[in-house]
């Protein structure tokens, strides 16, 4: 066994000690290790861990007897799944048609100016991550953003930035 393999096994060992690992095994068991439930299991895993760490993906592939590349292919196909840890605070800006027409890009530009990050990026201190959504289905209230699970609707840039700063706590 090479040195690299050893390291990887350590990551797996680490995972098995994690209390959330038990919940993940329960989810897989509930789905009877059926390969067609892969996406449903990935959803649950992401709920548990906040994102999809590599050892988790490996464990799921093993448990469902699926080829590694196929599982990785599924994870990267869907927007919802993230291989990277998200920031401590998150801001999700909707860029659906209604929000776009009503100026969602102004908000993104303001965030970029202030925090220097673009969608799918996190500030260097990992404190604040920015994401975009295709459509949150709240078009009547466009433009819409979600800051740490709280929905802010009919966002105007000048009103929005103070809200964001308050949440994140000052400058990055």
């Amino acid at each position: 066994m090479t040195k690299k393999d050893n390291q990887k096994d350590e990551a797996m060992q680490q995972l098995m000690k994690d209390p959330r690992f038990k919940l993940l095994t329960a989810v897989i068991k509930k789905n009877q290790n059926q390969s067609d439930t892969l996406i449903q299991i990935l959803h649950q895993a992401q709920n548990l861990f906040g994102y999809l760490p590599m050892p988790v993906i490996k464990y799921i592939a093993e448990a469902l007897s699926l080829p590694p590349s196929q599982v990785y292919g599924v994870v990267t196909f869907y927007n919802f799944f993230s291989l990277k840890q998200k920031g401590e605070h998150t801001c999700l800006v909707c860029t659906g048609t209604a929000c776009y027409v009503k100026g969602a890009e102004k908000i993104l530009a303001a965030i970029h100016e202030k925090y220097g990050i673009k969608p799918d990026e996190t500030t260097q201190d990992n404190k604040f991550g920015l994401q975009i959504a295709r459509c949150l289905g709240a078009c009547g209230l466009a433009p819409v953003a979600v800051v740490d699970n709280e929905v802010v609707s009919k966002v105007r840039v000048e009103d929005f930035m103070p809200i964001l700063e308050k949440k994140i706590g000052g400058k990055p």
Binding site: K4, M54, I57, K58, P67, P68, S69, Q70, V71, Y72, G73, T76, F77
Partner: peptide, 28 residues
């Protein structure tokens, strides 16, 4: 063996080996 599959979508699709590893490290 199913060593290869595809990652991502749109024009960003690529052939991958196992968990997007270097081919030489593939276990399959």
């Amino acid at each position: 063996a199913h060593n290869f599959d595809i990652k991502n979508r749109s024009y960003k699709v690529r052939i991958i080996s196992d968990f997007n590893q270097p081919w030489g490290e593939s276990k399959t």
